[in-house]
C-alpha cells in the first residue's frame, strides 16, 4: 500500500461521521479492530482461536464495571479492560498453545465458555440483563464524550467518535507494526512451517504466546471501547456466536491481509444492520454469502483484490 492510499483511508475515517450515523460507524470500527486482532493470530501465526469473544466481552465487562462503579475515566477504563484481556490471554494462551490445529481451537472455545459462564453468574455482570448504563464520562477527565455538535441540521457526537477513531488507528498501527517486524517475520515462518522454525532454533511456543497475548489485548481494547460506545456490556459480547462472527469477518475480508478484517467486519456488521428487518433469517443470508465466498473467492474480498493488483493489501 502506498502513502497516498493510507492518507485517503485516514481522510475517509475522519470524514465518516458527517456521512454515516456516528454510532454505527463506531460499531464498525470496534468490530474491525476485533477482527484485526483476531487476524494477527489466524492470518499471521496460523492459530485458529475459537474463543476470542472471551477477551472482547471480558474486557467490556471489566471496563464497564470500573467506569460505572469505580468512577474511572474512559481512557483508564479501556486501558484496564485491555490489560485484563492481556492477562486472560496469557492464561488461555499458555494452556491452548500446548495443542495444535483443531485441539487448539477446542481449548480456546472451552476456556471461553468458562468466561461466558462466569459472566452469567458473577454478581457484578448483571447476568442476563448485562451491565447497563455505563457512563461515557470525560476523556482525561476533561473532554465530554457525551457532547453533541450541531452540523448541517444533525446532532453529532464527534468527541466520542474521534476518540474511538484514534483508538482504532492505534490498534491498527500496533497490528501493522507487529506483522511487519522481525517478530512478525518469525510468526509467518511458524505459520508456514512450524517444525522448520523450531529446528532453526526458534522457541515456537514463546512466539505463539506473545502473539496470543497481543491479539487478546487488542480484542479486549475493541470490546472495552464498544462498552463505552454502547454503554453496555452484555452476554452477547462473550458468547461463542461472537467468537464465530469474528472468524467469519476475517475469512470474508481476507485472512492474512492487513485490510481484509476491516473490510470483512464492515460487511458483516452492515449486513446485520441493513437486513435487520428479516429477523433471524439474517443468519441464513450471511451463511449463504459465506458459502459463496468460500466457493468463489477463497482469499476473501481483499485477498482476491490483492491478487488481481499483485500486491499485498
Amino acid at each position: 500500500m502506498n502513502r497516498l492510499a493510507w492518507i485517503l483511508l485516514l481522510a475517509a475515517g475522519l470524514a465518516a461521521p458527517f456521512a454515516v450515523y456516528p454510532v454505527f460507524m463506531m460499531k464498525l470500527l470496534c468490530f474491525a479492530l476485533f477482527a484485526l486482532a483476531f487476524n494477527l493470530l489466524l492470518g499471521y501465526t496460523g492459530l485458529l482461536s475459537f474463543g476470542h469473544a472471551a477477551f472482547f466481552g471480558g474486557a467490556a465487562y471489566v471496563t464497564g464495571h470500573l467506569v460505572k462503579h469505580a468512577g474511572l475515566t474512559p481512557e483508564l477504563g479501556i486501558l484496564s479492560g485491555t490489560l485484563f484481556a492481556a492477562a486472560l490471554g496469557w492464561v488461555v494462551g499458555s494452556l491452548a498453545i500446548r495443542r495444535q490445529g483443531i485441539y487448539f481451537a477446542m481449548v480456546t472455545l472451552a476456556l471461553a465458555q468458562i468466561v461466558y459462564f462466569l459472566a452469567l453468574k458473577l454478581p457484578f455482570t448483571g447476568g442476563e440483563d448485562g451491565l447497563q448504563g455505563i457512563p461515557r464520562g470525560f476523556l482525561f477527565g476533561v473532554i465530554d464524550l457525551q457532547r453533541h455538535y450541531a452540523v448541517a441540521g444533525k446532532s453529532l457526537g464527534l468527541n466520542l467518535y474521534y476518540f474511538v477513531f484514534a483508538l482504532f488507528c492505534l490498534g491498527f498501527w500496533i497490528v501493522h507494526r507487529t506483522i511487519h517486524s522481525p517478530f512478525g517475520q518469525v510468526l509467518k515462518a511458524i505459520r508456514e512451517n512450524e517444525a522448520r522454525a523450531l529446528s532453526l532454533g526458534y522457541r515456537v511456543e514463546r512466539f505463539k504466546l506473545i502473539a496470543f497475548v497481543i491479539s487478546s489485548a487488542l480484542a479486549g481494547m475493541a470490546g472495552a471501547t464498544k462498552s463505552i460506545v454502547f454503554q453496555l456490556a452484555s452476554l452477547t459480547d462473550v458468547s461463542w456466536h461472537t467468537s464465530g462472527e469474528v472468524v467469519l469477518m476475517t475469512l470474508l475480508g481476507g485472512v492474512g491481509t492487513v485490510l481484509g478484517p476491516v473490510a470483512g467486519a464492515f460487511t458483516v456488521v452492515t449486513l446485520q444492520s441493513e437486513l435487520s428487518f428479516v429477523g433471524p433469517w439474517i443468519t441464513v443470508i450471511i451463511g449463504g454469502i459465506f458459502v459463496v465466498c468460500v466457493l468463489v473467492f477463497r482469499r476473501g474480498f481483499v485477498g482476491e483484490l490483492g491478487r488481481i493488483l499483485k500486491r499485498a493489501l
Partner: peptide, 16 residues
C-alpha cells in the same frame, strides 16, 4: 529468517 535468529531482534514486535 535463519540469519535473524542470532541477531536478538526476533522478539521485537515494535521494530520495523
Amino acid at each position: 529468517i535463519a540469519l535473524q535468529r542470532t541477531t536478538g531482534d526476533s522478539y521485537r514486535f515494535w521494530k520495523s
